[in-house]
Write a protein that binds this DNA or RNA. Structure first.
Length: 306
DNA sequence: CCTCACACCTGGGTGC
DNA sequence: TGCACCCAGGTGTGAG
């Protein structure tokens, strides 16, 4: 269940290892992990073999590895990147060259780094909700950097419709709050809408709502401006705290880039804690069905206020 | 245009 | 023991 903090941990782990490295070999063991790849663009392996990776960039839960200019000028395809979405259970594992494939490795990318030598990148994904792809880079609509990790004002075409995330220095607070209050939906649905604000999933949505004392089903149109602003502030706090702790995971599905588990569920106040006392008021937390999943909240602290 | 239900996936857990 | 079923949930798509 990687959300923004977990994906950022992966990005930060990959960045020093892959920047400047050349792709020497690509093996796709399960083509379902190329769900996001458009084959009319070219074969995934062929497009990136020989390319040089310029960095590691993230917006929300999307991660991409831009390819050096020299990698695409000859093919005249324009700037491109290796796009990664971890989905539910995806991992990007750095391994020594030729290391055995432990776990459901769907794609292996072998790299040659001028300083670090040979390195294997394993895309592991049990549930195959994640995917890799090669995608064209497009200019950002606002002219600002496309994501965290690069100054380039470019994003993959598949990320064009994804909103900036709340840790982005140019995240438009006022426009977000206005758009949130214009929506005719429930507040948690809005927090999970990646075209409105990106990077938040079921876990951090529940945590931020608990911290802001907002009921998950409160209509967005009924949120006062100060209350919406306070909610956004709690979203930022929750994400920043999780990031500082190295990400959150529950069943070892999520493992950081070096293979160590990012297990920090003890820091959660609401998510997954049905029946346990609310850390604020002591009353038992509740689990309620929501969008074919679950919402965890305190029925006492988190009141619908119209 | 907006909102929402649903499909896509697999492995672990549970009840019979 | 075996089997059917449920659950986890991020995203794209199509219906209304």
């Amino acid at each position: 269940m990687p959300e923004l903090p977990e994906v950022e941990v992966v990005r930060a782990g990959l960045e020093p290892a892959v920047t400047g490295a050349t792709v020497t070999s690509v093996e796709v063991f399960d083509s379902r992990s190329l769900r996001r790849h458009d084959p009319t663009y070219g074969a995934f392996a062929q497009l990136i073999t020989g390319g040089r990776i310029a960095g590691a960039v993230r917006r929300g839960k999307f991660l991409w590895l831009p390819l050096d200019d020299a990698s695409w000028t000859e093919s005249e395809t324009g700037p491109a990147a290796i796009l990664v979405h971890l989905g539910m259970s995806g991992q990007m594992l750095l391994r020594a060259a030729g290391a055995p494939l432990d776990g459901p490795v769907r794609i292996r990318v072998q790299l040659e780094h001028p300083q670090h030598g040979e390195l294997d990148l394993h895309f592991v994904d049990q549930r195959i909700f994640g995917s890799m792809a090669v995608d064209r880079l497009m200019p950002t609509a606002d002219g600002a950097a496309g994501g965290f990790g690069s100054d380039a004002a470019l994003v993959p075409s598949q990320v064009m419709h994804i909103a900036r995330d709340p840790l982005d220095p140019v995240f438009p607070d006022d426009a977000f709050i206005a758009a949130l209050r214009r929506k005719k939906t429930e507040v948690k649905r809005a927090l999970l809408d990646q075209t409105l604000i990106s990077g938040i999933g079921n876990i951090y949505a529940d945590e931020a709502l608990w911290a802001a004392r907002v009921h998950y089903a409160q209509p967005t149109a009924s949120l006062s401006r100060p209350r919406a602003r306070a909610l956004l502030a709690e979203v930022r706090l929750v994400l920043a705290q999780a990031l500082a702790e190295g990400g959150t995971s529950f069943d070892a599905q999520y493992v950081n880039v070096n293979g160590a588990s990012g297990y920090f569920s003890h820091s959660l106040n609401a998510y997954g804690r049905q029946g346990a006392p609310c850390p604020r008021c002591g009353r038992p937390l509740v689990r309620a069905p929501f969008m074919n999943r679950s919402s965890y909240y305190c029925a006492h602290c988190q009141n619908v206020r119209l």
